[in-house]
Nucleic acid binder design. Sequence first.
DNA 1: GCTATATTCAACCAAATGGTTGACGATTAT
DNA 2: ATAATCGTCAACCATTTGGTTGAATATAGC
Lengths: 122, 122
Amino acid sequence: MVDDYLAYRFNAAMADPLDTVFAALADPTRRAILNMLLEDDMAVTDVAEPFEMSLAAISKHLGILTKSGLISQEKRGRVKWCKLEPDALRAASVWMQGFGQFEPVNLDAFERFLEHELDSDA
Amino acid sequence: MVDDYLAYRFNAAMADPLDTVFAALADPTRRAILNMLLEDDMAVTDVAEPFEMSLAAISKHLGILTKSGLISQEKRGRVKWCKLEPDALRAASVWMQGFGQFEPVNLDAFERFLEHELDSDA
DNA sequence: GCTATATTCAACCAAATGGTTGACGATTAT
DNA sequence: ATAATCGTCAACCATTTGGTTGAATATAGC
């Protein structure tokens, strides 16, 4: 049907992208990583440096972020570069817009949130 | 310090609101519930009706949504009314805006997403 | 060819998540 | 008073999550 052409479907095998994106965002370590990548692309080791957990743990977090599409990883030589993929947030953002007409972004509030994130996570 | 006055902090006891909001949004059942409440306030039993799971399970989901602030519950008589609280999304929305200047909401895309959500979840 | 660096893999663990069922407390209706 | 309805609680279960450690696999440098 025409509907199926426009509104693509998910079978049991593939999870709704919103599931994985929101789940990825639910972890403070992962949000902190996204904030770091906002500044610049980074190697896995460098991403891990400020955190008090093992490199393997960060590697897992990066894997989750990659599966969700929020970042991409490209291996050049022996280092794997992590790059923010902000487009992946668009679906989630669009979904959220349905729940109220938010006033245009308040930059003060945004700065406070960013600040809090960096303080408490990194 | 002045900073602490403006940028309020979280101790180990209280979780970052973003944690709970994003975690709440990561579950398709809970997103479907939010979509239902977008239409109207509903009693717990009525929320549960379209789902293929127990009332107790839905009650738990509603508890999680309430803790996250995404909905509120008010008991009148023997029925507990559930009400959408879209303000809780604002923090998350603001946080997400930091990751790219999304073009103004595309309503076509939004409708497709809503449609997909309703089809696959309910 | 060795050695150091970058990253992942595999096995394991504790805690959290999402569901079930059955009993229970409140409230409403007969 | 008794019965039906609304919703939660408690105990349980399987699976997922977020972390650890130690070994393994590239790749780069000497």
